[in-house]
Design a protein around this nucleic acid. Structure first.
Lengths: 235, 235
DNA sequence: GGACTGAAGTTGTATATACAGCCCTGCGGA
DNA sequence: TCCGCAGGGCTGTATATACAACTTCAGTCC
């Protein structure tokens, strides 16, 4: 570090962000080129390049090779939200996580599930687990697993290891797809979450991929009154 | 580009990812140092550094200065989800977006809203807008705005500009906070979304910040049967 | 008038080099 | 035996340099 605790490329980022936040550089407007930043701030081009590149990857700017750098249109920029591991989340709140296994079996899954998993064989493993936070049911995990990916799934002790953890260990995770929606849970689900009739649930549908194949499909039901997703988008 | 279409630093990233995905390098395991990568792949250290730095920023690896680089524990990694602008989303589906303004007024907001906005004055601007996709109601936008931030809010034509767009133009966006939950909407909301009694809604609570102050607080209700958030997490 | 050409500007990538600061280990002295 | 310190390895940052590929625009030629 030549002079201060804050790196030079951070100063360059700040220099650009200041002009964007003040409204001086509107969305769509052209940002000073790397060479201009080099002259203005007396840094090397590589330093300016790193600063700009990081602002691009965070969605603040967009670049066109050979043409220039522009302020991204924030109206269309997505704001990220985090879907976190349920056990970790509970632990971080300082509460106790406990799981209860209701089903652990091999079966021929419903057609909707078959389509999502693109199964080769006819059968799949199926587990139904309730996750409790301080003895209050928080999540119902209804999961289907491709036997070709995790042959030992039925022998796992899900009281000690979450199925997500087990799958991670057996079949390295490559990709996760999520869909989040609000539903009134089916009658078979509501009582397991301690929900009265007509109460809403947040449903996360999670598909995981491993070694180029679909590994598992999970329906994660959460009590609407006790569960929420939170996210912050800065700059 | 010296040789191939795919940049060198991408090859370095692939080199590392391949070992992680194959299970050769488990979470927590130490990854080859930059110098080792330089020797293995015959690249410069700056190239190896860029590759590793990008893998760190995407959450695949974690580094400890002076110590080493390690495979991140994916079990605790959050998977990102995108909250997008409603008008853009509808447009990208090739459908028609239309807004209907139900209320546009100045009032003393409910205590819960006051607390969220940390208002200085007693009054706030309030707008209630329904967003339609091909004439089907998709989102009810119940928004409170700090008059100090957007004094001209009541004079805006929200049929032509979304309130989000207007606020962006007037007061540059610095930060957005989101909370997503599933609810059964109040009786005043359900009919506006074309929901029958007992149907679920996805509620996004959005707080925006500008120039260090809270600018607006919005309750965005979506018909649970017609709206979902989707996200993909790769690697 | 329209099409081609070339120069200037811009981003994208890659390298060699340098030094600061942190972590860990092992050696030597008390 | 235990403490302290030096050195080696690692990450973090910064620079100067180089070339490739793309865009834009002005100027020229047909």
């Amino acid at each position: 570090m030549s002079a201060a605790a804050v790196p030079l490329y951070e100063k360059v980022k700040h220099h650009v962000l200041k002009r964007i936040r003040s409204g001086e550089w509107q969305p769509g407007a052209r940002v000073h080129s790397e060479h201009e930043l080099v002259r203005e701030l007396n840094v090397s081009r590589m330093t300016a390049n790193r600063a700009i590149r990081e602002l691009v990857s965070s969605g603040v700017l967009s670049r066109i090779a050979g043409s220039g750098t522009f302020v991204a249109d924030l109206r269309s920029a997505g704001h990220p939200l985090q879907i976190r591991n349920i056990a970790t989340e509970i632990a971080e709140r300082g509460h106790v996580h406990r799981a209860e296994v209701l089903k652990l079996e091999r079966l021929v899954p419903p057609e909707a599930v078959r389509a999502r998993l693109k199964l080769r064989g006819r059968q799949a493993f199926h587990s139904l687990v309730v996750h409790y936070e301080n003895d209050v049911p928080l999540q119902l995990e209804d999961r289907y697993v491709d036997p070709a990916v995790a042959p030992g799934y039925l022998d796992v002790d899900f009281l000690k290891v979450t199925s997500h953890q087990y799958l991670m260990a057996v079949a390295p995770l490559e990709r996760v797809e999520h869909v989040v929606k609000a539903v009134v849970p089916p009658a078979s689900v509501a009582p397991l979450l301690g929900l009265g009739a007509g109460e809403a649930a947040l449903l996360i549908e999670r598909t995981t991929f491993s070694r180029g194949r679909r590994a598992s499909f999970a329906l994660l039901y959460h009590a609407g009154s006790r569960f929420e997703l939170a996210g912050v988008f800065d700059l």
